[in-house]
């Protein structure tokens, strides 16, 4: 899924990302779990990845469940930038 316009969310714990996975699957929202990109974050585990165009459907669901990430990035080709979220 190495495409432009991806949002990558890193969570503080594996449990939080799996709870996020349950929630988004339940609502049939488009996302994947990917290894945390080592270019930007040293965590060992997984990150939640979705296309930027889906952010308005995904982020409110996570916020309502108090499952906000600890860090977020936007990937454009090989370049990562920090992504601001609310």
């Amino acid at each position: 899924m190495d495409q432009d316009g991806e949002i990558i969310l890193v969570f503080s714990s594996n449990t939080r990302i799996l709870n996020a996975e349950d929630l988004l699957e339940e609502k049939n929202l488009p996302f994947t779990l990917v290894p945390v990109p080592k270019e930007v974050n040293p965590n060992c585990g997984l990150a939640l990845c979705f296309m930027e165009s889906s952010q308005d459907r995904i982020m409110p669901v996570l916020k309502a469940a108090e499952l906000m990430p600890s860090a977020a990035y936007r990937r454009l080709g090989p370049e990562f930038s920090t992504w601001a979220f609310e």
Partner: peptide
């Protein structure tokens, strides 16, 4: 191992632990 890598078997192991937790 659960929670230690990002590949599919690691994710499967993580989901096992998560199922127990749920």
């Amino acid at each position: 191992s659960p929670g230690r890598s990002g590949h599919a078997p690691a994710l499967a192991a993580s989901r096992i632990i998560h199922k127990a937790r749920k």
